[in-house]
């Protein structure tokens, strides 16, 4: 009888162990849906060829700040691919799910691709918007998401602010007045970049959308180049969306190895090609050269140069009571 029971137990366990399937959750920001749809398929194929295992990757998208908060609140992300480093820092600091030095674990500060903020205007550019000065003119309606919840919106805010600093000799008062004029022209704030694209492109609101470069290209592709055009301002910001393994969650799921490989594969030629095809600026110089025609050259300032890093920028501009709270009147 003992032997019979042992056999029953062992056979049950072995039957279930053979049915293991790798499931990975990538919690990302709003406009990366198309990028990761393509990338996930490529990685699953790569992983299958390498290990023989099937990996099924689920995606979750939303405003970067909101997504980070969801992970802090318990969303079981194996990896996060968010819009800015501060949001991953928040996960590290508030939920202790990954170490504080997470950004050192992958090349280029764990940012396998970059982007910037450009203008999407209606065909013919009826308001003659060419630079940031045009955006703040009275009568120009500007669509941009809420910097409190959207990473892209924070990049857009800082791009405009950086322009003002450069233009007015780093006069903070003038820069603040400039950004005030900008947000006076904003009739509505979506929570994420994709929502703002819908507001501008589908709902017909506003004269200009301050958009991620890739999102602007996607809008042209999605809604028609006969309806919109992209205006690249002479100066914008170097947006660096980072990626990280959420160590404790990945470990709990037994996914540490595959999660690491998933992010490392972003730096491979395949990963960089997919990023470039989706209008993210690749880090790999050869791939960047190959897709140079996709990306207009412009002066790109960095958060570190202009704002002293993300922690300072966040505290000064986007924290409760910060500059944005002071200047924005809904």
């Amino acid at each position: 009888m003992k032997i019979l029971l042992t056999i029953l137990l062992a056979s049950s366990l072995s039957a279930v162990a053979g049915a293991k399937e790798i499931k990975l959750l990538n919690v990302s920001y709003d406009p990366t849906r198309e990028l990761y749809q393509e990338y996930n398929a490529a990685f699953a194929k790569y992983w299958k060829a390498k290990t023989g295992d099937d990996v099924v990757i689920s995606q979750s998208h939303g405003g970067s700040g909101k997504q980070a908060q969801s992970v802090i609140n318990g969303l079981e992300a194996d990896v996060v691919t968010l819009a800015l480093a501060y949001d991953i820092d928040a996960i590290s600091q508030q939920a202790r799910l990954l170490p504080a030095d997470w950004q050192k674990r992958l090349p280029d500060n764990s940012t396998p691709y970059t982007s910037t903020i450009v203008f999407l205007v209606r065909k013919g550019n009826p308001k003659h918007i060419r630079d940031w000065d045009d955006v703040v003119k009275p009568g120009v309606s500007v669509v941009v998401p809420n910097p409190k919840t959207s990473g892209g919106a924070r990049w857009a805010y800082l791009a405009a602010y950086a322009y003002a600093l450069e233009t007015y000799g780093h006069d903070e008062a003038k820069a603040k007045a400039f950004i005030t004029r900008l947000y006076r022209n904003v009739p509505i704030l979506d929570s994420g970049a994709r929502g703002s694209t819908i507001t501008f492109a589908q709902r017909g609101i506003g004269d200009v959308l301050l958009a991620w470069e890739n999102e602007a290209h996607l809008a042209l592709k999605e809604f028609g180049a006969d309806k919109f055009e992209i205006i690249t301002p002479p100066l914008s910001i170097l947006a660096e969306p980072p990626v990280a393994v959420v160590d404790k969650v990945a470990k709990r799921h037994g996914n540490t190895e595959v999660a690491k490989a998933y992010l490392e594969y972003l730096y491979s030629d395949d990963g960089q090609e997919i990023a470039a095809k989706n209008f993210y600026r690749p880090r790999n110089p050869a791939i960047a050269e190959k897709y140079a025609a996709n990306f207009t050259q412009l002066k790109l300032v960095t958060v570190d140069q202009e704002f002293g890093g993300w922690a300072k920028a966040q505290a000064t501009h986007f924290a409760d009571g910060g500059v944005f709270d002071q200047i924005y009147q809904p």
Binding site: P187, I188, D190, T199, R203, G204, I205
Partner: peptide
């Protein structure tokens, strides 16, 4: 028209929220 669109979109966003 823009005001109506903005109000309509705002209503949409409020509903989503």
């Amino acid at each position: 028209d823009q005001k109506v669109r903005v109000l309509s979109r705002q209503h949409e966003l409020d509903q989503e929220t």
